[in-house]
């Protein structure tokens, strides 16, 4: 018999397809158009007709899949696997990967707008997270012993993930903080660089100590989040604001001094860095 899920989704599908045909006729569609997907004659308003038709078909597709699964009723699922009963869910270990993945997605989104390098960094983070996530999901079900599962996972992944994650964090940090530094005044940039360096050192020291002294994980997590948000948010803000103005180094008689090494050597205020950036 038809299952409840099938009836619901198929009903929605039929209603939407019917609505599409009605919509077609009432918005200027010709005789055969709305019932032939516009193969012959017009369908009326294209967007409304098409959206209703595609949504209807998608709902019908879901309905057909659901009836194939018998609404995924527990008894049917157990029967499929060949056991008497299956627990609804298995324990899933906690993981940083979802939040890192979300951070990666955010980085991609920001990079899409502001900087290709940031986008690629986000893409790398998301790709790494996809692999890690998949391995976690595998490890959760590798055996019935959670400890053994964890050991298995770490044995395979730790040699890869520590350098990769470190690299990704450094890449994002360098790119985003460079935006901040380019936006800030010269003195401000020095101060910001100093403060960030001290914070990184402090977090590193605390993380190292936590192995032996069990420093509060929440504190470390909090600092990491604050730093991450500051770098990403600051990077976004700074890029939106634009770089600070870099004054062209005044070159008298530039034609005659072109390629004059000694002249470039006189540049002690770092303005040439700005030129290079530009």
């Amino acid at each position: 018999m038809f299952t409840t899920g099938f009836k619901f989704f198929f009903g929605i599908g039929v209603a939407l397809v019917t609505a599409a045909v009605l919509y077609g006729y009432t918005t200027g569609g010709n005789w055969v158009g709305p019932i032939s997907w516009g193969w012959k004659e017009g369908v009326g308003e294209h967007i409304g007709y098409g959206v209703l038709m595609f949504l209807g078909l998608a709902a019908m597709g879901i309905a057909c899949t659901l009836i194939f699964f018998r609404d995924a009723d527990p008894a049917d699922q157990a029967d499929y696997v060949g056991v008497e009963d299956i627990e609804p869910t298995m324990p899933v270990t906690g993981s940083f990967w979802p939040v890192i993945g979300a951070f990666g997605a955010g980085t991609m989104a920001v990079g899409l707008v502001l900087n290709t390098a940031i986008f690629i960094t986000g893409l790398v983070i998301v790709s790494l997270v996809a692999v890690e996530w998949m391995m976690d999901a595998w490890a959760d079900r590798a055996t019935g012993d959670p400890e053994a599962n964890r050991a298995l996972r770490n044995r395979i992944m730790a040699p890869i993930e520590i350098p990769a994650l470190g690299g990704a964090i450094i890449a994002v940090g360098v790119l985003a903080s460079s935006r901040i530094l380019l936006n800030a005044s010269k003195l401000g940039a020095v101060v910001i660089a100093g403060v960030v360096a001290v914070i990184i050192l402090a977090i590193g020291a605390m993380a190292a100590n936590s192995i032996e002294f069990k420093i509060n994980r929440n504190l470390i997590s909090g600092l990491a989040v604050v730093l991450g948000v500051a770098i990403l948010g600051g990077g976004v803000w700074a890029t939106v604001e634009g770089e600070r103005e870099f004054h062209e180094h005044e070159v008298h008689g530039s034609d005659s001094h072109e390629g004059d090494e000694s002249h470039e050597g006189e540049d002690t205020d770092g303005e040439h860095d700005g030129e290079a950036e530009e």
Partner: peptide
Amino acid sequence: TNIAFPRAALGAAWGFMIGAGI
């Protein structure tokens, strides 16, 4: 005992926050 795909649900929560922030 849990939501389906709890890690995806957590990722969605953080993705939502980051997206909303942006």
